[in-house]
């Protein structure tokens, strides 16, 4: 499972970087969405994937039996998803406002503050 996930994560990063390098601000935001999801999947993969081992302790026991999945990465990913959702909601509103004010979606025409 890990090799497939590694390839998926790599593809997501590549797609995200490609989208961020495009001129359109909409594609830029799509790139940001992809890269945050790629990071989440990376946490999921690198923390180790365990099938069929829910982190539960049987009734009466003190320790769980056998190999169990680590629940912490899932909590991290959940937190990161929520944060990314909030931030991206802001980014979407920002590009909408930016488009309304600047009347362009081309990043090449947003250089007034650079000179």
């Amino acid at each position: 499972m890990e090799p497939i996930m590694a390839i998926v994560v790599g593809l997501l990063y590549a797609a995200a970087i490609y989208m961020m390098l495009r001129r359109s601000i909409v594609k830029l935001v799509i790139g940001l969405m992809l890269i945050s999801n790629a990071a989440n999947l990376l946490i999921f993969t690198s923390a180790g994937m365990t099938r069929g081992g829910p982190p539960l302790i049987p009734e009466g026991a003190v320790l769980p039996e056998g190999v169990i999945a680590d629940p912490l990465p899932q909590a991290l990913i959940l937190t990161a998803i929520v944060i990314a959702f909030g931030v991206l909601a802001f980014a979407v509103v920002l590009i909408h406002r930016a488009y309304n004010i600047l009347r362009t979606d081309n990043l090449d025409q947003m250089k007034d503050t650079d000179t």
């Binding site: 601000i25 830029l28 940001l32 920002l94 004010i101 600047l102 947003m110 503050t113």
Partner: peptide
């Protein structure tokens, strides 16, 4: 707006 797009990204 222009500054914010760069800052945010």
């Amino acid at each position: 707006m222009e500054g914010a797009v760069k800052y945010v990204t």
